[in-house]
Amino acid sequence: MGTMETAEAHTAVHAAAHTAAHTSAVPDALPLTLDYPVFCAVGTRQHLAAIVQQVAPAHRIAVISDDTVAAVHAPQVMAQFEGSTASLFTIPPGEQEKTRERWASLTDALMAWGAGRDTTIVALGGGVICDLSGFVAATYMRGLPVVQVPTTLLAMVDASVGGKTAVDTPAGKNLVGAFHNPAAVVIDPEVLTSLPPAILRSGLAEMIKHGVIADVAYFDRLLQALPSLLARGAQAPEFGALIAGSVRIKAAVVAEDSREGGLRQILNFGHTIAHAVEKLLHYDMLHGDAVAMGMVAEARLAERLGMAGPGLAAAVEDAVRRAGLPTRLPVGVSAASVVAETLGDKKARAGAARYALPRALGEMDPADGRWSVPVADPIVMEVLAGLL
């Protein structure tokens, strides 16, 4: 099958590769309390076709990826689906591609290919592909199964698990989306060996966040492992267990509150500030880097409000710095501009930005069951001024 390109999209459709389909047995999933299995082990991607056959058997398999990821991982993935009607749809890489226009181009390409309710979508890529492919799956034919195959650390521990799908708009990040649980998540830490160090390091931010919001023992284990993770990258022997631990924390929160009506808001720690900074920089900052800086700011905010005792902010900042992640606002970004952007965040209510804040390592402030609090702009401005 040839390549299809339009002015609106750069969507490549490729025939399945020539090697035999993989028919091995499905491995064991992690022991989680989610409504779908999460597989996490080295080599798990070798069993992708068998997993899809078990959780979402379909006549057609639409693999959605970006050009960079597809060049590395698509041949092996497509080879597993030889004998099926399977095609690969690719887009350019980058957060700037997570738009309503790109959603439209992908759905149009699926229609042109003949995809119907007999189709399963496989999302092969980082957070952008997880979010965008999930939104395509949530909306195409009123909902298709999607199997998430994250290829970045950030996507493994965050975007692929939880069922949040979305695209960005000029007004803000993730403002158009839907909750749509995957049929399965397939995490293979081995794919991390292909990541540049900066991309891999960025994923550590969400892992630090999981420790701060829910598990101080996990936080301590991660800090102890950081020298090895930074020195050896994806070859670090601790990585697999730490990824599984991070997924366990997120899964436990999501299982309690799947649609972000309460407890799930704790996963937004660091994100109110992060999303504002990302938008100001036109999404030219790695999401994990923005979250790292956002956690430093919001931990200081928790102390400034008296919700957290002295020392919390220093502990969070120390962890972020030891991971090699930013602790200050980017050059050229003012405190006033960040505060202005937070008011357009999807978590804002009645004109006030809301923050999910910790009161200790491993413990978030419940805010009388709301799990987030409005904070006056002058206080946020004061805290951000200390991060310039």
Rank of each mutant, 00 (worst) to 15 (best):
L32H: 01
K164E: 12
G203I: 04
S133I: 08
L88P: 05
S160F: 11
L387G: 03
A352D: 12
C130D: 12
R300V: 04
P366I: 09
I64H: 10
T342C: 15
P31M: 06
G309F: 05
G309C: 04
M381V: 01
I121Q: 05
A184G: 09
V149P: 10
L204P: 11
R102N: 07
S258F: 09
G2S: 13
A15L: 15
G324N: 09
L223T: 07
M381Q: 14
R142I: 03
A231N: 11
R221A: 14
E303G: 06
G240D: 12
D28H: 14
V191G: 04
T119H: 06
G94E: 12
L132N: 06
L48Q: 10
G2E: 03
G288L: 00
Q46C: 02
K164P: 13
A356E: 08
G332A: 08
E97L: 03
R117C: 06
R201Y: 04
A7W: 07
L263W: 11
E260N: 02
A315D: 13
A352M: 15
I379F: 04
T327Y: 01
I379D: 13
H287K: 00
A71V: 12
T152S: 15
M141I: 05
E382H: 12
M285G: 00
G125E: 12
A231C: 06
E8I: 01
R359D: 15
G126H: 08
G270I: 08
G270F: 03
I266V: 15
F135R: 03
